[in-house]
Design a protein around this nucleic acid. Structure first.
Lengths: 190, 190
DNA sequence: GGGGCCATGTAACCCGTTACATGATTGA
DNA sequence: TCAATCATGTAACGGGTTACATGGCCCC
């Protein structure tokens, strides 16, 4: 799945400009399962236009830059449905935060705390955002994925909070041990 | 963070070949927060060798292709620590599965069920794998991230299972409504 | 006056995936 | 016999990010 397909999907929710689609990825309904930047969205919309999968209307605004409102065509909807019908690839998570928690013993205590608390803060913020959505006026799919995001964010936030103390204690303990003179597992290099 | 850095991290866990590092991403400790393929791992190891961040020993084996065992140098460990000290970027999830659940009404019932059950199966398998790990012999960071992965996978699997019925019911209901003759929100295209 | 938001777009670059190339051994 | 596992590597290609380029309005 690429940004072009995601743009088609975004337009099934209603006509939108490239700027508005970007917001959808950044803080809207797509935020918890995909990301895309202007540098990919604008070229994608241009290509979709060339292929006739979207149409565009220029909206000149008062006291605002002109907007290009994109609209999904029937062809575009068909192409989107076909793309959805393909078998999905495995979810891919890339978490630099988890990498840092995994290698906690190679960070200073300050760095580790910054990572930990920043990470916890992210999950709380995302939970908050999802919790504030009124799911009763959403389609089945949107409500379901919203609830799923909420369930996973809340469980991670809870895990982080309940295990914070013991985690820092055991990292500390490990660092004490490795700093003592009788434990040099790492030998000299060639 | 790139594959080169992750390879350095992998080697802090012990000497390994490119093939073994790949397994770490595929089914080992890294599997639930990063991914990388041979096409990125082998070139990465080659570059790290040029830069003196790893050393290599060729192991000729009986009845097996020769192995190149890579070993982290002191320089490599330093570089890895410095990379970890940088501020992590936001976690990035790319989930084609969630995209499909989000747009459930554009899938056939069969496709949707295949996606749903495949997704649930993935989470159960990953939970199973993490649950089978004996955390008592892991470092603090590894045990903690293992527990975190388990908490999130289990909560998602539970969410999927408990909401399966009602989800399919409401998707069905929506499709019935949109198929009835008096609901054509989507108008003709230019 | 300065930062942030609105708004679009391009180009260079990075990086990783996919597919290809090779080949032996082991177990069903 | 056929698939899977072990084992390394390259090259073409795709795709997205970052940074650059531009500019006005609004609020503090």
């Amino acid at each position: 799945m690429n940004v072009k397909t995601l743009c088609l999907g975004a337009l099934t929710l209603g006509d939108a400009s490239g700027y508005e689609i970007r917001k959808l990825f950044e803080e809207g309904s797509f935020a918890h399962f995909y990301d895309a930047s202007y540098g990919s969205i604008y070229p994608a919309l241009g290509q979709l236009l060339d292929e006739g999968l979207v149409s565009v209307t220029e909206m000149v605004q008062d006291r605002r830059p002109a907007k290009k409102i994109y609209h999904l065509t029937n062809d575009g909807l068909q192409v989107f449905k076909e793309a959805l019908a393909e078998r999905p690839v495995r979810d891919k998570l890339r978490s630099e935060n988890i990498v840092r928690l995994f290698f906690a013993e190679y960070l200073t205590e300050d760095s580790l705390q910054a990572v930990f608390d920043g990470y916890l803060h992210d999950f709380k913020a995302m939970s908050e955002r999802l919790r504030s959505i009124d799911r009763s006026c959403l389609t089945a799919g949107r409500a379901f994925t919203c609830g799923m995001g909420l369930a996973s964010y809340e469980s991670i936030a809870a895990y982080l909070e309940t295990n914070r103390e013991s985690f820092f204690r055991s990292v500390d303990a490990a660092i004490q041990v490795s700093a003592s003179p009788d434990s040099h597992q790492k030998k000299d290099e060639s």
